[in-house]
Design a protein around this nucleic acid. Structure first.
Length: 652
RNA sequence: GCGCCCGUAGCUCAGCUGGAUAGAGCGUCGGCCUCCGGAGCCGAAGGUCGUAGGUUCGAAUCCUACCGGGCGCACCA
């Protein structure tokens, strides 16, 4: 907060100064931390940019701007350095006092309503680690948006009428000869139903390969499910619901929650699609093909849009010749609903409750809709967290809005795209997959639900917990089995969430189990460890009857100007960058900025911690100064943990 | 063919809208536990930033071309 204020004030002051001195209006002044702390706390190269226009040497310009520049209270001086940089040095005391109070304080509400759709795992098998990348990114995006003061709705789209569910239904009905009663028994028997489906789905895939004629089963089944007819459709719904229940348990292990599950079947049954279809037909951009290869289909004409220029096939089928609607068609209807552009609304019923009593709602077309259910949809901005391979379809959804005259909403339909999680050859082998010679050299192998190739999310979490639990045994144990187990869970979450966030979103993660299990270096557990230690110090001070003197009036009286040496000040300065980092992470959709920032800060603090003992420092004021720095660090980390979704243990 | 993404140290990656000496983790080598818990800290070695041009006072960063790798362009999702 304080840093943002200073930056804005300085920016305004410099603009005004440049205008009066040179008559040049500057649009924006970029103020950034200089490369080394000794150079100052904020710097700008504005003088270099102006050199040509002002026909003066950069240093000369910088000197002119600096002299007589009105500085904010927390800025003590300005210097001109290097080729003509303007460097600003903060008043460490004023800045630290103001910052310490503001860390983690909620930002003012913006009133902006945002919907984030994420997770969206096909409800036909267990979640694998690739799905977790989606869920962790989506959840972290949500937490970031909330931290910035927005109101966010957490949606999870359930494709319960698609091919993948149909294939598992085929597996039960045709390969196992099982119906509703048998499947319900399996769901109730306490084993992981999603794991069973994982294997069954792979079996169906292999069966199709060996017996292509069996694909007829898929067509029949899919048709019945889409129409909602008979026991087959009922079975599909039962399977989808049971699997989604498991998915929510898996994601809940990572602290990921939802407000509403939107089911594809309800988009059809609530006639959202029909309404969207009417609008699209009226727009003239969606037409019925009388002949050609798309004869009998309703297609969206994309040729006129510059976005799709040069495409070999500029038409996209929305309704197949057999009358069924494609995924994109339904997605356009869904997107319209998210913005409140379709008039109607869903019915909702309770899907499950979290321990604190909050409800996850699901859409329903049956007569069991709850009268007092909350109102969903109608957002001002929408983020769809979907992997990069669906970029083309997301573009079409956006184009759909534009065609219907909703240009602004199209602009605010943001595709949060990210690369896939693949398997390192070593990990693939360890899963018992035969790696073909030609794949041996590849950097990674794609996961495939159809082949049953992938690391299941629950298995990964189990392994991480087991490994953490092992480390906690012996001297680290708290003596309480329950506490140790909880700590192991927290460490596992930290490890996995951090791992999923630390890579840039455009990077393919070649998932290597050994690497993901690492608790050292650039990892979540390292962050926890560095922060928990600070808590230990304060606890120990308390035990020894030493007051850390962190109360506001006590800190106010403390000498923390020049006495706050660079090693200390650096931590305060870095901590103050946090808000800016959150903003940039959201703007660029690059959430790895958050983990990077947290890691840099933790590393800097760890170094400080080894160099400057706190507990054993004899001088009261010096000990207090160090304690203030430790507290700045601790509060900042707690704030960041809240945003990246890592729970903070008391001890570890 | 058209479009998107990636190419930086042995490996995995940072490097923000161009800016001051290109950084981290892992690995390797060498130090540091009578300690605020070593899941840590300090140090060393290690880089033609894929290649070639261009723009600029200044390019890992922007533009163009090329090379290498991945993905997308279904009456699948």
């Amino acid at each position: 907060m304080i840093l943002e204020q200073i930056t804005e004030q300085l920016s305004d002051a410099i603009k005004a100064r440049v205008l009066t001195l040179f008559g040049i209006p500057v649009e924006r002044v970029i103020l950034q931390a200089p490369p080394r702390l000794a150079m100052g706390d904020l710097a700008t190269a504005v003088a270099m940019e102006l050199a040509k226009q002002a026909r003066k040497a950069p240093r000369q310009i910088a000197e002119a701007i600096a002299s007589g520049l009105e500085l904010p209270a927390a800025v003590s001086r300005v210097s001109v350095e290097g080729a003509g940089y303007l460097n600003f040095h903060f008043d460490r005391r004023l800045f630290t006092l103001a910052h310490l109070e503001a860390i983690g304080a909620p930002l003012p509400e913006t009133g902006h309503r945002i919907t984030v759709e994420h997770t969206n795992i096909n409800p036909n098998k267990a979640a694998h680690i690739g799905h977790l990348r989606n869920a962790v990114l989506g959840d972290t995006l949500i937490r970031s948006l909330v931290a910035l003061g927005h109101r966010v709705e957490r949606q999870n789209y359930i494709d319960d009428t698609g091919v993948q569910v149909a294939d598992v239904v085929v597996g039960f009905e045709r390969l196992l000869g099982e119906g509703i009663a048998e499947v319900q028994k399996r769901i109730a028997d306490g084993t992981k139903f999603d794991y069973f489906c994982w294997d069954l789905y792979a079996r169906v895939g292999h069966h199709y390969e060996a017996h292509p004629e069996a694909l007829e089963w898929r067509r029949e089944t899919l048709h019945k499910i889409e129409k909602g007819e008979g026991d087959t459709a009922k079975l599909g719904a039962i399977i989808a619901k049971a699997v989604v229940k498991r998915h929510l348990e898996t994601t809940l292990r990572l602290g990921i929650e939802y407000d509403v599950l939107v089911k594809e079947s309800d988009i059809i049954r609530q006639r959202f699609w029909d309404r969207a279809f009417e609008l699209l037909k009226k727009s003239g951009s969606v037409i019925f093909e009388e002949e050609g290869k798309h004869k009998g289909c309703w297609v969206m004409k994309l040729a006129d849009s510059p976005e799709f220029e040069g495409m070999e096939e500029p038409d996209k089928i929305l309704v197949r010749s057999n009358g069924t609607v494609t995924y994109v068609g339904k997605d356009i209807a869904y997107q319209l609903w998210k913005f409140g552009l379709i008039g109607d609304t869903f019915g909702y019923r309770e899907f499950r409750r979290y321990d604190d009593g909050r409800i996850v709602w699901e859409t329903t077309s049956d007569d069991d809709a709850v009268a007092g259910a909350p109102h969903f949809g109608g957002a001002q901005s929408v983020y769809n967290v979907i992997d990069v391979r669906q970029g083309y379809l997301q573009k079409i959804v956006k184009e759909g809005l534009r065609i219907l005259g909703h240009a602004q909403q199209a602009e605010r339909s943001i595709h949060f795209s990210y690369e896939m999680v693949a398997l390192s050859p070593a990990t693939a082998k360890s899963l018992g997959v035969e790696v073909k010679p030609e794949d041996e050299q590849k950097a990674y192998l794609e996961m495939s639900g159809r082949k049953g190739l992938g690391v299941k999310a629950d298995d990964m979490l189990d392994e991480l917990e087991a490994k953490a639990r092992e480390k906690i045994s012996g001297e680290r144990s708290s003596g309480s089995e329950e506490d140790d187990a909880r700590l192991a869970r927290q460490i596992a979450i930290a490890a996995l969430r951090y791992f999923m966030l630390k890579y840039g979103r455009t990077k393919v993660i070649a998932f290597d189990v050994a690497e993901a299990l690492s608790f050292e270096g650039d990892s979540g557990p390292y962050l926890l460890y560095s922060t928990v230690r600070v808590g230990n110090i304060f606890r120990k001070m308390q035990e020894r009857g030493v007051d850390p003197m962190l109360a506001k009036d006590q800190v106010d009286r403390l000498a923390i100007g020049d006495e706050l040496v660079d090693d200390m000040w650096q931590i305060v300065r870095m901590s103050a960058d946090t808000e800016n980092v959150i903003r940039r992470a959201v703007e660029t959709l690059e959430l790895s900025l958050l983990t990077r920032h947290a890691f840099d800060l933790a590393q800097t603090f760890s170094s400080f911690y080894h160099k400057f003992p706190i507990l054993n420092e004899k001088d009261d004021a010096e000990r207090q100064r160090r304690a203030v720095v430790a507290e700045v660090f601790r509060r900042t980390m707690v704030q960041i943990f809240g945003i990246i979704g890592i729970p903070m243990p008391e001890r570890m």
